[in-house]
Amino acid sequence: MRFDGIEAAGLTVAILAVIVSCVFIAQNSFPTPYSTPPLKSTQSVGQEVSKFMWESRSLDLIAQALVLFGAAVGCLAILRSEKDEKKVKSE
């Protein structure tokens, strides 16, 4: 495979970044969170998550639905049929 300048530079920087991050992670252990746990959970995670989501993250869920709506409208807008499309295309 032939490398061009950008790929070579990308590879170099990426390897550099990998080395830096590995060294960093090896040297600095990640602390435990500062606050206290929210729930005393004994249930399985799967059940807990769906309950938690509906109880506590309902706003996010609605917003997520809106994003889906927005993305759908966006795709529609880009894929909209345009009668004069071919005419304008040749610029």
Binding site: P33, V49, K51, F52, S56
Partner: peptide, 14 residues
């Protein structure tokens, strides 16, 4: 990472 044996549902919902 919170506490041994505990998994936070918060992160999962995110």
């Amino acid at each position: 990472n919170w506490k041994t044996g505990f998994v936070d549902p918060f992160a999962h919902s995110i």
